[in-house]
Amino acid sequence: MYKIKTGKFLDRLPFARVGGGIDAILIINGGQGFMMRPETSRLRRDASRLGRILPDGRSFVLLGYDPKPGDVSVSSIADDIAEIIDNEFGGRCQLVGVSYGAVVAANVASRFQHRVSRLALVAGGYDFSPEGRHRLRRQAELARSGQSARLLQEFSSVFRRPWFNFLLKLRIRLNARKITGRLSSPATVCRYLDAMLAYRAGDHQPEAEGPDVLVVLGSRDQFFSRPSVLYPRVKIAVLEGETHMAPVERPADVKAILSSFLDSRP
Rank of each mutant, 00 (worst) to 15 (best):
V108R: 02
F112P: 14
S117W: 04
E131G: 13
G124Q: 05
A102P: 00
F128I: 11
Q94K: 15
P130T: 07
H114V: 15
V103L: 10
V116D: 04
G125H: 06
L121M: 14
F128G: 03
S117K: 09
A120Q: 07
S110C: 11
G101F: 00
R111M: 10
L121G: 03
D127Y: 08
A106K: 09
V96Y: 00
A109I: 11
G132C: 14
C93S: 13
R118C: 15
S129M: 06
H114A: 06
V96R: 06
D127N: 07
R92G: 03
G132P: 00
S129L: 04
G101D: 02
R111D: 10
A120S: 15
A105K: 08
V98G: 00
V96W: 01
E131F: 07
V98S: 02
L95A: 04
S117Q: 07
V98T: 11
A106E: 11
A109D: 10
L119S: 10
V104D: 02
L119A: 05
A102T: 02
V116Q: 04
A109Y: 09
A109G: 10
R111T: 15
L119V: 09
Y126M: 14
F112Y: 14
V96L: 11
S117E: 14
V103Y: 07
V103R: 08
A109N: 11
R92D: 04
R111P: 15
R115H: 10
A102V: 06
L119I: 13
G101V: 03
Q113H: 14
L95S: 00
S110Y: 14
N107L: 14
G132V: 12
A120I: 12
Q113S: 15
Q113W: 13
H114P: 00
Q94V: 09
A123F: 01
A123N: 06
A123W: 01
Y126A: 08
S99Q: 06
A105W: 09
S110H: 13
C93E: 08
E131N: 11
S129H: 01
A105I: 11
V122D: 04
H114C: 11
G125V: 11
D127M: 08
Y100A: 05
G125L: 05
S99T: 14
Q113F: 15
R115E: 13
R118G: 15
A109Q: 11
Q113A: 12
V96Q: 00
G125T: 12
A109V: 08
P130C: 01
F112N: 12
Y126W: 05
A109T: 08
E131R: 13
N107I: 07
S129D: 03
L119M: 09
V98W: 01
G125W: 07
E131A: 01
V122G: 02
R118K: 15
V122R: 02
G125Y: 02
Q113K: 14
G101E: 00
F112T: 12
G101S: 07
S117G: 15
N107S: 10
G124N: 06
G125E: 14
R92Q: 13
D127P: 03
C93Q: 05
R118L: 12
F128D: 03
V98L: 04
F128C: 09
C93G: 02
V98I: 13
E131M: 02
G101C: 05
G124H: 03
F112L: 09
S129W: 05
N107A: 12
R118V: 15
G132Q: 05
Y100V: 03
L121H: 02
S129C: 08
